[in-house]
Amino acid sequence: MATVAPRPFPRRHLLGIEGLSAREITVLLDKSEKYVDRNRRVNKKQSLLRGRTQINLFFESSTRTRTSFELAGKRLGADVINMSAEASSVRKGETLIDTAMTLNAMRPDVLVVRHPHSGAVNLLAQKVDCAVVNAGDGSHEHPTQALLDALTIRRRRGRLGGLIVAICGDVLHSRVARSNIQLLVAMGARVRVVAPPTLVSPLFERMGADVHHDMASGLRDADIVMMLRLQTERMQGAFVPSVREYFHFYGLDYQKLAAAKPDALIMHPGPMNRGVEIDTDVADDIDRSVIREQVEMGVAVRMACLDILTDHLSNAAPADAGAAE
């Protein structure tokens, strides 16, 4: 391999946050920052990925993440194709690996993959030649979500280190929580996870988070309150007795929020269950809630990831092809 200079992000794929250094995370965030500005202009279109093909392969339904990746690819000039499991041959019994090999034969440059099972994206990445971006796999990781959350926080607070971040809700099954804990811990934030004992494990302490079972202690002096979505199928007696009881103890309302810092930011990866994990007024509080801003950051972060990963591909586009500067 004729690599010339050390690359700022020396990886072929973005499969997770685990293993990324603070430096690599910073490289991604700095690059994203430039795309935020770019996206606020009238002409958002660039030609950095002109001629490149991006396939969004979603084995699990998603609107916002898929749209965000699609916009990111198109704004960079790539040809973007969306494939969903419903429409593909996966339903006909073709294995994940067969699907990967088939798509690989079509010579895409980037595969953006979401899958309901942990590790499925890693498996697929072993079988293809192109760059793979994990858009969420089971309960494992959702790296671009963690990056967009970090970017949102960094722009509002100017830093990540030293902040107290409370992640509340179904931590156990959440890929968003896993990616966020690892990113925030790597960047020096103090992370707490807050959930009933059925939705969190004491083992999260080994990932560097403090485990809390009540909102009052978990939110005390928090700079950031990050709410997670509670999957409806996990309620009704399986992990918590009822929606009503869950909201009573863990739903974010102004009363519970009072424990946090007065200017604490409220975040949510969406889509929200209003009245289940978050009170409607809190979610819509323009002084506190940065939920819409997270969505905006999402496009910029995904553009930055596509930019950096395709930069590694052989015969990379010439530098004057319109990279964000």
């Binding site: 685990e18 942990s118 590790g119 796999d137 089971g138 309960s139 494992h140 990781e141 890929r175 896993r178 494990s201 083992l203 999260f204 080994r206 990932m207």
Partner: peptide, 11 residues
């Protein structure tokens, strides 16, 4: 069940 399973997001 343990730290590795937790990190991998596997039950």
């Amino acid at each position: 069940e343990g730290e590795l399973a937790l990190r991998l997001g596997l039950p």
